[in-house]
Design a protein around this nucleic acid. Sequence first.
DNA 1: TTGTACGCGTTATCAT
DNA 2: ATGATAACGCGTACAA
Lengths: 327, 327
Amino acid sequence: MVVTAKDVARAAGVSQATVSYVINANPNQRISEPTRRRVLDAAAALGYAPSAAARALRLGTSDAVLLVLPNIPFGHTVAHIIEQLTDDLEAIGLTLVTRRIREPGQALNAVRQLRPIAVIDVAALTEAEHDEIRRSGIPISSSVLAPTSDVGALTVPQDTIGQLQVEHLAARGHRVLGYAAPQDDRVSEFLRLRLEGVREACLDLGLAQPVVVPVELSADAGAAAVRAWQDGSEPITAICAYNDDVAFALLAGMHRLGLSAPDDFAVIGVDNVPLGALASPPLTTIDQNVELLAARIAAYVQFLLGNGPEPVSNGEDTLTLVVRESA
Amino acid sequence: MVVTAKDVARAAGVSQATVSYVINANPNQRISEPTRRRVLDAAAALGYAPSAAARALRLGTSDAVLLVLPNIPFGHTVAHIIEQLTDDLEAIGLTLVTRRIREPGQALNAVRQLRPIAVIDVAALTEAEHDEIRRSGIPISSSVLAPTSDVGALTVPQDTIGQLQVEHLAARGHRVLGYAAPQDDRVSEFLRLRLEGVREACLDLGLAQPVVVPVELSADAGAAAVRAWQDGSEPITAICAYNDDVAFALLAGMHRLGLSAPDDFAVIGVDNVPLGALASPPLTTIDQNVELLAARIAAYVQFLLGNGPEPVSNGEDTLTLVVRESA
DNA sequence: TTGTACGCGTTATCAT
DNA sequence: ATGATAACGCGTACAA
């Protein structure tokens, strides 16, 4: 029922080892063209493909790349990363496996079971865990979307996101900003870092510190937040939203109050979700260029495999402002 | 560096076999409580976890569940399925592996490499491939989101989606409908089936056949489509959109033309994307209840593993109308 | 080109 | 009653 290398060897009239050499095009072995053909034909005829398990057992490492996620909501950006990374890794014969960490220690366990060839951490692991994984011989990548930007090569600096938002609004003449913060505790670290970037940029550019208001994902909440900014003592004219979802809530709330962006309040989001272009007005936002990030992660893994040059590290250059009409 | 069962055995002063019995709580072997404790303590102290590869090799099947996708864009619904399924499977010790099929044959190859415990097909495989996989001893599930609903237990009937849209619009008094079709060839099969459901429902309810207009995902395209319906000879009052993304394009187009739903045209989407509630007006749509679908798939896999009762099959009951204001 | 040892967890068989 | 021994599965790499 299940075809093994032994079956192919028998069918081709060669040894198992020869089958392995042919299948893997082992450069250290010269197999004559006729034998090569016989093996390949037999393999095709029988429908043979090497068992990933046997390979992994022998090699000591699997074809898996482990993507470790914290328990955050699975928004457009994360989904897009997974999509891109799955494709990019598949193209080089690797398999993406995602694990969402809910309890500490889960990640280490997954690593020990899977023996992945690399671990990509999206802000789910502690430094101690990183060390532990590296010590176990797995070349772990640095933390994508890492809280701190000091760990390595593949970080998306969250503070820069906030800075870019403020810079754009300041360039448009806004002087007093609001900040729309999500309520979800699971993203509080991302929020903290983005807000930090906003605060720094305000300081640098001589703006007042932002008036932070929590916003849930509903038109009601959006309207309430807008009223809060209106009723406050500060003359707020523009709002940085934590992400596009929050920005949508603000736009919906403004619509309900008979207000509109950018005249009553300018609104800028983060993520460049596809629907942002279809909002009324179309949403100005910060794009994270997930395709490029995924490609760089894949290149990094290639490098770890010894099949590529030292890859470029990821940083601010994947972040770009997308100007539409809302700000 | 890497901890094996042998290390644990040595540390606990027992044999490798005993370690295996304890770790897997093998019911055919009775291990005394003291030894059990020693083994467990040693395993914890050393940070032992069984190698997935060795396990898979020995058992002949891995912990992987293979989700096979066609080369379709990775929208909210697919992303959500992947998210839910990843979590649900992880909860029962299984690993979701996703493969996107671009060339015929890729799926079979992946199956032979991975030896997954189950294969979930999202409309990417032929019947011949299903048979081939089943013949190789893997209990393949039926096709989720299958073009045809005759293959098995876990189908999302696309035609019913169209029917539900029409039934709602008809109940609101609409008699002549437009249908907004996406341009992407990769979803043409889904489009065909949904449209088929729309046509049948129109027939059943005595409505005119829908006026189908292609719509790309931009406000321009949405406006053009709306004008096409306005300029046509039919007195169209409501529009079924292929999905919520298309519906957003229509709403954006209408907004640009100074029109609004539901008064000028009622609009109903499909998918219940989170941002639908924040559209202006909030989007009426068909929810696919992806959580339940994922749970049923997981239950089905459990059943395949012999750890659960015959699971319920998926069908129309996961589809529900979500009435908001756009229709 | 081939023979063969190896990696590691599982389980049937055997020993105490 | 408890636990140990050993065979097994399959692809890889080194020595022959």
